[in-house]
Write a protein that binds this DNA or RNA. Structure first.
Length: 456
RNA sequence: GUGGAUGUAGUUCAGUAGGUUAGAACGUCGGAUUGUGGUUCCGAAGGUCGCCGGUUCGAGUCCGGUCUUCCACCCCA
């Protein structure tokens, strides 16, 4: 009779101590940079009311929401006829009031509206928490993953966009991840759709435009045609996406072509201003890419996406400006802009390219051997003294064969073993063994701490 | 949600044209060394062959379904 092997839900993962050490390196780096730029931490619950989440991410996003079945007799609200006539999609809202958060931006918008009395605008917050998506798992794609968000809400200034770009550069430079930062502006895309006479179809157009880099212009044109975009419109859109030359050349051409679109012209102004803030060195690796579209529906201005070089992982950071996310929760005229680092994908990229710094030793430095009996108080005194001296140390919990205790130290890469048995106790000393060299010395505990404490 | 691949001891993998008690390495545990690890030697434990059903005298091996992991699409961090 064997118990079935335990398992965890599809797309979720456990993290070992080694993995956690590396993950924390990423989280700590991002947190340090966020703090350095004046962002304040915030957390929100894992689950939100479904009404908060639904309709914010487009149809596709709604499908990927994890819904939570109501507690108690959740079927009583349904009724027999509904049960038989409705599909599971229509049934869901009747039996689910809550869902797991899909990202950190929408819960943050909710947070801002709910706590507006206590918030002094502009509000700069950061938030590092897991999110959940019922996507099919794949390389670099998990059902539970961490986002590391920073947002400024309540300020229209493009200096915020500029600052977020600097943060992105700072984080990836500290992590040593080579990357390219793509920027664009939704207003430019809206303007293009407008002058092409298909302003209504902006969503269809942007999601297709986004694929240019992947499937090529010809395929995109084919898809647009298939979606019913008239050839005359495509004829206007296409040359714009194929603009070449320097950023200022591109902006110049765009302002000519978009001159009849107020939205488009604002896009030109915004993009020119942002590009203007970037000094020569800072603009390294920042690319103005008209084909960058990004799916999330709520973006209205600048959009940002970071791709790792030397990797097929895809996007490792994304963001943009949303002018009216808080509007749906009852607070209008509050524009925000934010970015989000995908910690799990950054982890994958760093592992692939061997970018993790040699693991800092955060494990135990000294293991005190347990002989049991009368020596226990003596051994306990030894660990206590080591800890008082700031040396990470532990007493082996069981008084078992020394072979076992030494092999434990070896397996856990503990560099020192302190032997405090009867002989040592009688002499008022300890025997210290350096595991690397295998050499042993009898000495007082104080002289050990004096001699090696500082290096541990 | 659509399409494809995968699944055998804790781990990485063998397993011949369906045929007795399913193998190896590493790891684990015990011993050589009852106060000494990492090397060596000896020994042991550990598997309802992902799960359910079917074909067959007989299935780890063939067929169907289902789940997991991985890959592509959709979409995205």
């Amino acid at each position: 009779m064997s118990i079935p092997a335990p398992s965890i839900p599809k797309g979720t993962r456990d993290f070992s101590p080694v993995e956690m050490q590396r993950r924390n390196f990423i989280f700590d780096t991002i947190r340090e940079v966020y703090t350095l730029y004046g962002y304040q931490p915030v957390e929100t619950p894992a689950m939100e009311n479904l009404s908060t989440l639904l309709g914010k991410y487009g149809d596709e996003g709604d499908k990927l929401l994890f819904k939570i079945v109501n507690s108690g007799d959740f079927l009583s609200a349904v009724g027999v006829t509904n049960m038989e006539s409705l599909g599971s999609a229509e049934l869901a809202p009747l039996i689910c009031d809550r869902g797991l958060r899909y990202d950190l931006t929408v819960p943050f918008a909710r947070f801002v509206v709910q706590h507006r009395n206590k918030i002094k605008f502009p509000f700069k917050r950061y938030q590092i928490q897991p999110v959940w998506r019922a996507d099919r798992p794949q390389k670099g794609r998990y059902r539970e993953f961490y986002q590391c968000d920073a947002d400024v809400i309540g300020s229209n200034s493009l200096l915020n966009e500029y600052e977020l770009l600097l943060i992105i550069k700072e984080v990836f430079s500290r992590l040593n991840v080579s990357n390219r930062i793509l920027i664009n502006n939704r207003k430019l895309l809206s303007g293009i759709a407008e002058v092409a006479g298909v302003g209504e179809r902006i969503t269809d157009i942007t999601t297709e435009i986004d694929k240019i880099g992947k499937i090529g212009m010809n395929e995109v044109v084919k898809n647009l045609t298939a979606k019913g975009i008239p050839e005359s419109s495509i004829a206007v859109i296409r040359p714009l996406l194929e603009l070449t030359g320097s950023n200022s050349d591109k902006m110049e051409r765009l302002s000519e072509i978009l001159s009849n679109s107020a939205t488009g012209m604002r896009g030109v102004e915004e993009m020119s201003e942002l590009l203007g803030y970037l000094k020569e060195k800072e603009s390294d690796g920042v690319i103005f890419d008209l084909s960058l579209a990004r799916g999330l529906n709520y973006y209205t201005g600048a959009i940002i996406e970071v791709k790792a070089e030397d990797s097929d992982i895809g996007s490792i950071c994304g963001g943009g400006r949303y002018d009216d996310l808080t509007g749906v929760f009852g607070l209008s005229d509050t524009s925000g802009v934010g970015i989000s680092f995908g910690a799990d994908r950054i982890y994958d990229v760093m592992l692939q390219n061997d970018l993790f710094p040699q693991a800092k030793l955060t494990g135990t430095s000294a293991l005190v051997v347990n002989f049991g009996g009368d020596t226990t108080p003596y051994a306990l005194g030894v660990v206590a003294a080591l800890r008082r001296a700031g040396i990470r140390s532990e007493l082996y919990p069981d008084s078992v064969r020394l072979k076992k205790q030494f092999s434990y130290a070896n397996a856990n890469k503990i560099p020192w073993i302190i032997v405090a048995g009867e002989d040592e106790m009688a002499a008022g000393k300890v025997k210290v063994k350096e595991m690397d060299s295998g050499s042993e010395r009898d000495m007082t505990l104080n002289s050990f701490i004096d001699e090696y404490g500082a290096s541990l």
